[in-house]
């Protein structure tokens, strides 16, 4: 890359005064411009994203209800977390979300392979497959809660075929899975579209060469296709992990963590503790958020590391 340290290439032919002024500017504009361009974005980002992270970590050391003065309590919120049954339930549910959400990646890949053809109307069909992703999770949550309602769709259906009416969202053993199932629906669409793009950009020569060598079916897929889809897979995993940890909307709409906290996840539990009708425990809520943040941080660092490797190669 060319470096930009040649400020005196052109000198405008104007009065002495403006000349001198612009000359200072000319000399420094390369250095200053990026900061001027960065200023609004960086400022907003620092105020609304970076500073709040540290502020939250500090609040997690307080006992504070938002009304009366805050009391510094050290790590006692974290100590309490260790003895909080609902915390463990939520953490376990987060894990279930994370693991099951990963299914969206292979299912999305399968769908993409299935749809990567050129028959009449395939473009529209692909769009229709994709469009659950465009719809708000609130709407998806409403649709699925109605499905699961014992007076809705699945209950009466099970009843009719003799399995007995069953309320999935009211059962501590199944509520979480019911929500995950609803949540994974748009996620599959997302993964599908990533893979469709990936499949579109495959290197045809390599595939043909592979076919010439007699590779076909699974071995072709494993040895030639999949490695080429690596960027798509990476991105699919990234967005799926993030999607699984942002399970708030679905839980808030479908069960609000119920029955009795059994379908809670950290994201919703934090909100419930800190802001809901019955609890205003800002400090405790922040401690939960800090745990969630720490989990995510590993992941962010991994992602950044990968990007950094890519950048180094690019430079």
């Amino acid at each position: 890359m060319v470096s930009y340290t040649t400020p005196f290439l052109t000198v405008p032919n104007s009065t002495q005064f403006t000349y001198r002024k612009s000359s200072w500017w000319k000399r420094n504009q390369q250095r200053l411009t990026p900061w001027i361009f960065l200023f609004p974005g960086l400022l907003l980002f620092l105020v609304y994203v970076i500073w709040p992270i540290f502020n939250s970590l500090y609040i997690s050391l307080l006992q504070w209800d938002g009304l009366s003065p805050a009391i510094f309590v050290g790590i006692s919120n974290y100590v309490e977390l260790l003895d909080d049954e609902y915390f463990y339930i939520s953490l376990m549910n987060n894990l279930k979300w994370l693991i099951l959400f990963m299914l969206a990646v292979p299912i999305g890949l399968g769908l993409a392979i299935f749809l990567n053809q050129t028959i009449f109307g395939i473009r529209l069909i692909k769009s229709l497959f994709f469009f659950p992703f465009v719809i708000s999770q609130v709407v998806i949550g409403i649709i699925f809660s109605w499905f699961y309602n014992p007076r809705g769709v699945i209950g009466p259906f099970l009843d009719k075929i003799g399995l007995g009416n069953y309320a999935i969202l009211a059962d501590e053993n199944f509520a979480t899975y019911g929500i995950i199932f609803a949540g994974i629906y748009p996620q599959i669409a997302y993964c599908m579209i990533l893979y469709l793009t990936g499949l579109n950009n495959l290197n045809t020569d390599q595939i043909e060469a592979g076919r010439m060598d007699g590779a076909k079916g699974l071995s072709l897929f494993k040895n030639i296709i999949l490695p080429q889809l690596k960027p798509a897979t990476f991105l699919a995993i990234v967005v799926t992990v993030i999607g699984s940890l942002r399970s708030f909307d679905m839980v808030a709409i479908m069960t609000q963590g119920g029955p009795y906290g059994s379908s809670n996840v950290l994201a919703y539990y934090m909100f419930e503790t800190a802001l809901s009708e019955y609890g205003y425990r800002m400090g405790y809520g922040s401690a939960i958020a800090a745990v969630l943040f720490t989990i995510m941080m590993f992941y962010i660092l991994f992602f950044i590391y990968r990007m950094y490797q890519g950048e180094k190669k690019g430079l």
Binding site: P34, L38, V49, R246, A267, A289, F293, F303
Partner: peptide
């Protein structure tokens, strides 16, 4: 533009983008 903090700022933006909302909730509110 090439400057020292470039990559650092860039990665800060990326990292912030992945942060769970809950860690921002109380201070932003």
């Amino acid at each position: 533009y090439k400057f020292k903090a470039n990559l650092f700022i860039f990665f800060t933006f990326i990292a912030g983008n992945f942060v769970p909302f809950q860690i921002l909730m109380i201070p932003v509110r």
